[in-house]
Design a binder for these strands. Structure first.
Length: 529
RNA sequence: GCCUUCUUAGCUUAAUGGAUAAAGCAACGGUCUUCGGAACCGUUGAUGGGGGUUCGAUUCCCUCAGAGGGCACCA
């Protein structure tokens, strides 16, 4: 719908210029949006405001020219405010969308927006040195929901977890398990690892390797799969990559590009060619490779697998690494680099005092603990609500109280209420086969239908902006509109069967759209609570 | 010192450069229940300070103040 309005506006503008009503000038790009306020219609364009200067006429005048030529396909086209052009859809469009939702069910609003582009979405990727903590949770839920959104809008997405099991931290983990003087990590899980590993040789690297595997299999994976309900398509091991010779290949390839040089006994990559602050070491003077070198191998392997879009969801503390990362991507010949989502760190507060999260001290609050305390749906909804830029503070003292007041219940309750109405509708024999949807003329009904009309649009722009945090807001809005409708209109009324059937159809469609929104968020859509 | 993110209502947060800045919680006042009251309706209340760009700025630029994060031949 949006696209067709855009083309119509473009067409009319050209004809206005041809007729000499508007002077000849390069037409700006036409933007059509869904206005947030319903009183401004279903779609709106600011084109008259944007081009008024070039046209040498005031915006309202330009808008009026357009208005006169665009009227036919809409119930109303209006010029409002400083020169906005607002489009109101016909009654038949409203009724039609309900039919469409009921036909397509959960596939309603599936789109081809992403054009099957192959996306690699890497998130969490916590070091295999301990259980996942709250900071991992934020990026985890965000990444998972983003993937769901991208798939819905036509991208082909692979969720990937990178296991950093080849570096110095593995040796440190080994020392910690051995409990020698170089131990750095503490906490209960270290004791558990010790017990599970049994007889230990006195080699921190070997012990660390085995311990890291256990951390992944016994802590990280269960938390992700059962606790957080995230499924990864791929778990990539840094060590496997290194042992498979990927890193050497990457370095060779970079040498071929002429980006590699020697200095002070070390081997460097000239990342400054691509906007990095300084060049980076690949091979240290002592002959060992840096983490950055294996990162190069990893990037090459992603590119060789044919991913056209690379998404990296990192903690904001990794901000300084984006340039060198992109430098490598570009050195391998990909022009636009990766999409980075930098999640600001979660600040943890308990009774007004900040809790420093440190694996060393063993005072981390784990995802498992939080999920056990308040439940998966509450945890996920809470973390997903906020934009990555927000420096969110999480008050543990309020966590339980929050769980009672979490909006996720409000939304789920709306869904359960719909289910209950539909069940009742069936009992009293409401037949959906031949429904007269033109009876849905109440303002609250139109408001619900408007959400359906603009649903796909909403999803596509959230996908375009990598902004899954808008989904909880949509869920709340849908629930709000439904509750409000419910309070004002009797859905099932035996005395008025025709209207009731239309309303049951509307509730049924609303339930599908809300259910789909909840699925994209990743929380359950209960039939009963 | 350099780079970077943030500052919106009492609190936690929304708002692809658009129209009257939106919710939840808290507070206050109503609905008194035939479909699920975990609900509905209403009231109070906000863009850190100062410049600039723009027809239009919470949004872009500069600056000041405050708060986070980052600046390894570590990973």
């Amino acid at each position: 719908m949006k696209q067709s309005i855009v083309s119509k506006i473009e067409e009319v503008l050209k004809s206005l210029q041809a007729e000499g009503i508007l002077p000849a000038f390069a037409l700006p790009e036409v933007h059509v949006e869904v206005p947030k306020d319903e009183q401004f219609g279903e779609y709106t364009s600011n084109i008259a405001l944007v081009m008024s200067k070039a046209a040498g006429k005031n915006p309202r005048e330009v808008a009026t020219f357009l208005q006169e030529k665009l009227g036919d396909d809409f119930a109303k086209v209006e010029v409002a405010g400083p020169g906005h052009l607002n489009f109101f859809l016909k009654e038949s469009d409203f009724a039609h969308v309900v039919t469409e939702v009921l036909e397509k069910q959960e596939h309603f609003a599936d789109s081809t927006f992403g054009q099957g582009v192959k996306v690699n979405n890497e998130f969490i990727s916590a070091n295999p040195t301990g259980p996942l903590h709250l900071g991992n949770g934020r990026g985890g839920f965000y990444g998972d929901s983003l993937s769901r959104l991208l798939r819905k809008t036509g991208f082909e997405v692979t969720n990937e977890y990178y296991i950093n099991d080849a570096g110095e931290q593995v040796t440190k983990l080994g020392h910690s398990v051995l409990q020698d003087e170089e131990a750095v990590y503490g906490g209960e899980y270290i004791e558990e690892l010790r017990a599970k590993l049994g007889e230990l040789e006195n080699d921190a690297w070997e012990v660390g390797k085995r311990a890291a595997e256990l951390v992944v299999s016994d802590y990280i994976k269960p938390t992700i799969e059962s606790g957080m309900q995230i499924s990864f398509d791929k778990w990539t091991s840094e060590r496997a990559l290194v042992e498979g010779g990927m890193v050497e290949r990457a370095i060779e390839k970079l040498k071929e590009q002429g980006r590699v040089f020697e200095n002070e006994g070390a081997t460097w990559l000239r990342t400054t060619d691509f906007g990095d602050d300084k060049d980076r070491v690949l091979i240290k003077a002592d002959g060992t490779k840096t983490y950055f070198a294996s990162e190069c191998g990893y990037i090459l392997s992603k590119l060789e697998q044919g991913y056209e879009m690379i998404i990296e969801i990192w903690g904001a503390d990794h901000h300084g690494y984006t340039n060198r990362f992109n430098a490598v991507v570009k050195a391998f010949g990909k022009e636009e680099g990766a999409t980075f989502l930098l999640m600001q760190l979660v600040k943890l507060v308990k009774n007004g005092e900040e809790v420093r999260m440190s694996k060393r001290a063993g005072n981390v609050v784990t995802m498992d603990e939080l999920i056990e305390l308040v439940g998966h749906d509450v945890t996920r909804f809470f973390f997903l609500q906020y934009s990555p830029d927000t420096h969110m503070t999480f008050d543990l003292g309020l966590a339980e109280e929050r769980s009672q007041k979490n909006p996720v219940f409000y939304v789920q309750y709306a869904h359960a209420r719909m289910a209950s109405i539909l069940e009742k509708g069936q009992e009293v024999g409401m037949d959906m086969a031949d429904v007269n949807l033109s009876l849905l003329v109440h303002g609250k009904e139109k408001s619900l239908m408007r959400e359906m009309l603009t649903f796909q649009e909403f999803l596509e722009s959230a996908a375009r902006d990598s902004a899954p945090h808008r989904l909880p807001q949509l869920a709340i809005r849908l629930a709000d509109k439904f509750h409000s409708y419910y309070a004002e209109c009797q859905v099932i009324d035996i005395e008025n069967k025709e209207l009731s059937q239309a309303r049951v159809a509307l509730v049924s469609a609303t339930k599908i759209v809300l259910g789909e929104t909840l699925r994209l968020i990743g929380v359950s859509a209960p039939e009963k609570m």
